[in-house]
Design a protein around this nucleic acid. Structure first.
Lengths: 223, 223
DNA sequence: CTATGGCTTAGGAACCTGTTAAGATCTCCA
DNA sequence: TGGAGATCTTAACAGGTTCCTAAGCCATAG
């Protein structure tokens, strides 16, 4: 069975290239060259959406909003600029990942593949990993029947890991995306949060593995 | 069946050298010394194009553009400078890989082979070579059902080899790309890592072959 | 047989992580 | 506005892991 990928990209060259790479890799890509068409589509017909934010007419954000209203499909956002505002807004609107042009097609492919190995995310916005249940809407976490109280950072940290169970999430990514972005680098802050998270989660906490020199990973079959 | 390679390179020496290497390696190389000729060609007649950006008259980018308009042939770009602008522009125009001069002809050959001989990379980001499975996303390695604990360098080394099973990966490439780039040259560090990797992998470790005077190779049918 | 390159062992240096404790900051409510 | 409590950050250190280098031995090519 082939994953269906929707690509929204106005650049003729880049679009063709991306489509080619996806097809080669065994995906089933659909390519829209403008936002209007993308606004008509049923997002739930696709397994993942690659969206260029810099569409003519600044439709990028509209498309993203539309997709988010309709379904919980992962969205990978592309942007030509490396402006933080774009990134922040995209993430606020529910983008799942973000890439700055230019990039290697392989990298895009790799990220998409990583994203598709996704967790059990129920329609109500609950991520389930083993006995762990994360209500991303109500921002509540439970293990079995027990509710666990987490702070904001702890919750975001756990969510980031749980969104891609089994994947190693790099320290830098976590620091940049979960912790306060205004911070300056070079501390043990992340470790402290992980430490407390593990303690609060008890047995489940032990399924947060350290990937030495890289980051952390939530084991998929967390009991 | 021979792969047809188009080489666009104005430097007499380098061109001759590259052509020689490709021919030796069993490719079918065609060599153009200037961009004008390259603009006339039908890119779809080739399996891969090696393009020097620094052509007289600055035709490099034009050729790239031409190729991209015509067909979806992989293009490997060469450039004398190590300037980011060139790299970025090449990427925007759809180059698939990029090499900075000077380089070893072997390295060029290796990259070309890597591109033509697609790695065994499954949808989920797992590289499989025989009973060996490398989860590049989760950064985990297993042989059959057994998980193998590898350090960061060991993992990256194995991945580099496994991405191109059967291909000889040069020592220099491994040292430059896998080991800490800040290091100074002239040690036996790589050997030590390979040694430990072999030991940890047990039987599979024996399929990491030494290519005398060149580097290492992971045998494709590793048990 | 010789020279070159590769393998392995061992030790120490460098690095990374986990944890505790304390200070800074934020939030909420009276 | 003030203050208590919760939350986040930083510093400091311990403990462990990983990496690099040196040195001797072995394998290979010529």
């Amino acid at each position: 069975m082939h994953y269906r990928i929707l690509i929204v990209e106005d650049d003729e060259e880049l679009g063709k290239q991306i489509v080619g790479h996806f097809r080669e890799a065994g995906f089933d890509p659909t390519w829209f060259k403008n936002g209007d068409a993308a606004l008509m589509v049923r997002p739930q017909d696709f397994d993942l959406i690659v969206l260029d934010l810099m569409l003519p007419g600044a439709y990028g954000m509209d498309v993203l909003k539309h997709v988010r209203q309709e379904a919980d499909v992962p969205v990978l956002v592309l942007s030509a600029r490396n402006e933080t505002t774009d990134k922040v807004r995209a993430l606020e609107l529910g983008a799942d990942d973000y890439m700055t042009k230019p990039f290697w097609p392989e990298e895009l492919l790799a990220r998409v593949q990583a994203r598709l190995r996704r967790p059990v995310l129920t329609r109500s916005g609950v991520i389930e990993v083993g006995s762990l249940a994360i209500d991303t809407v109500g921002r509540q976490v439970s293990i079995g029947d027990e509710t666990v109280e987490l702070t904001r950072v702890e919750f975001d940290l756990l969510t980031a890991l749980a969104k891609r169970p089994g994947a190693a999430i790099s320290r830098t990514w976590l620091v940049d995306n979960v912790l306060d972005p205004e911070r300056e680098g070079g501390t043990r802050t992340l470790d402290v949060h992980i430490s407390r998270l593990r303690k609060k989660l008890g047995d489940v906490g032990r399924t947060i593995a350290t990937v030495w020199g890289v980051g952390y990973r939530l084991e998929p079959q967390s009991t």
